[in-house]
Amino acid sequence: MQDHHHYDSDLLVILRHGPHGSSWLKEGLDAALVAAAFGRRVSLLFMGEGVAALMPCQKKGPLGQKGTAETLEMLEMYDIDSLLVEEQGLSCLGLSSDDLMLEVTSLSPPALARVFAEHRLVLTF
């Protein structure tokens, strides 16, 4: 069965974890970068705790663990410019989008649901 629905974008990668504490954020970003390198149109959605990935001034972790901030700074090179943040995730941490290291679009729940419908594939990390 073929899906004839038109999607605005190919892949939505949902990032729900902050840097350093686990490999979820890094491995989710890896999937996004690979898809973009293969010419897919990719959006990133930072949800919940994942909003912390966008904090400026991050440093290396224990044993020199690299973290993910450098990868996020490279997103433009991969043509990943659709950076979405869950409004609730921001307010939960007492942050606003101005506090973040990259320019993002903040989404309320109805807008979130629309984003899910616009992508051909959704991967949650």
Partner: peptide, 12 residues
Amino acid sequence: LGQLVDLGMRCD
């Protein structure tokens, strides 16, 4: 990982 992306795009 390209295989994962490919699967996601190719499969229903």
